[in-house]
Design a protein around this nucleic acid. Sequence first.
DNA 1: CAAAGTCTATTTGTATTACAATACCACATT
DNA 2: AATGTGGTATTGTAATACAAATAGACTTTG
Lengths: 241, 241
Amino acid sequence: MSRTRHNLCEQVVHDLGVRIVSGGIEPGDAIPQEWMLCEQMGVSRTVIREAIKSLAAKGLIESRAKRGTIVRPSCVWNHLDQDVIAWRARSDESGQNLICLTEFRQAVEPKAAAMAAERASTPELDRIREAWEEMDRTAGNDVEAFLAADIRFHTEIMQATCNPFFSPVANVIGASLESSLRVTNCLPPDNIPSVPLHEKVLRAIVEHRPMAAHDAMLSMLMDAAKRIERAIQKTSDASPK
Amino acid sequence: MSRTRHNLCEQVVHDLGVRIVSGGIEPGDAIPQEWMLCEQMGVSRTVIREAIKSLAAKGLIESRAKRGTIVRPSCVWNHLDQDVIAWRARSDESGQNLICLTEFRQAVEPKAAAMAAERASTPELDRIREAWEEMDRTAGNDVEAFLAADIRFHTEIMQATCNPFFSPVANVIGASLESSLRVTNCLPPDNIPSVPLHEKVLRAIVEHRPMAAHDAMLSMLMDAAKRIERAIQKTSDASPK
DNA sequence: CAAAGTCTATTTGTATTACAATACCACATT
DNA sequence: AATGTGGTATTGTAATACAAATAGACTTTG
């Protein structure tokens, strides 16, 4: 039970979620019955049932009377749910998940940047600019603050597409940046070269140049992907086999 | 209470979900208190609470003791959740939602097709081919079966990317095709021209030609988008203002 | 003997009651 | 006027009881 969470139900959701996503219980298999979970976790059936409803809402499990509650095939999980992404990231020893995250970003974000360049309203442009300014301010000294600003920069671009279906991509971006921060284990100065790359994207969007925004975003992501790949290479060399 | 669902909780989730997504309760506002919902819907507090957990898991609401349960800003909703998509589609009078769905597909699917062309394994290729064959078989006579096969075709391509983050896109595809079927109000023969467009995608993927797959998918989607736009134009002309 | 139907036991689904924890609000205190 | 303090409404948790559904064993019947 890692660390205390804001209430019992969330704690149970987290524990079961991690167990399922990390492969502790395989798709098709049943999770323990309710009374058994009550015993194992020392909570009432009320709590267990509410947790089960949460996980079912995320697509992870499905309950039927008598049959029990089974883990659904992973292709129907809500893989862009913030919790599911976090649980997945936890059990990513190899860095394979980080590669998938980055790959997905490469597929979606350039097009999103282009759409933002077409449509972003003035307040949306301001929010993107503010995020970039925060990046510029914190680069080289505060890694945490830079990360937060970086996430905000990309998230605001998703919002600026004026298409709600891009919103969940923000979860991928957040997980990707956090995870890559851990993997590359970077120092404050390492953030500095990233600033002009983001600036290029910012300018293209502000000046309503979709193609330029697309290309700038793509090359920024390719650069990030390259650094991640190198870092993963290094760590797998350090602990071979 | 539209129509009877498999259990009480799901019914409550559906009713509340529709009310929230359709804008009946705005972000920042509180939903009725638990005892009030019990009265309104004629169910126990147990059921209400489990439904609330479901909606919270989808990002729609957030509960706090005393403060009540409030609707969260729509930018943190899990917009790619199957239920959320369905609820959104219900309240799409203008066709604006269908346009967003299509636009998102255009942003993601070409790249996904390219990745599938790079990596798809033989069984995955078989499943894509089978889906296309089913489309070919049912085009011109069975609209329902054609729709199902069409959805399967695109869904299998998402799976063939070998990247789990593409899976939820299948929900968008399903909603888009169903919704566009309703809007364009098409007859069986209207499906026929769609078959060779899909065949082009299929061939490119099977022959492992990423660029070709990308382009074939994109032009297919552009074609679909054009037809949808025409249909929406027509219906808004029919019922002006 | 096989196929169909029935019964039972197990598991989830729903209702009810009670109390704990929390946080907003009004009131009192300094 | 600012601060503290307690009441109160609302969600959080527990416990119990029963309903509904169904897998699997058992029985009946052709």
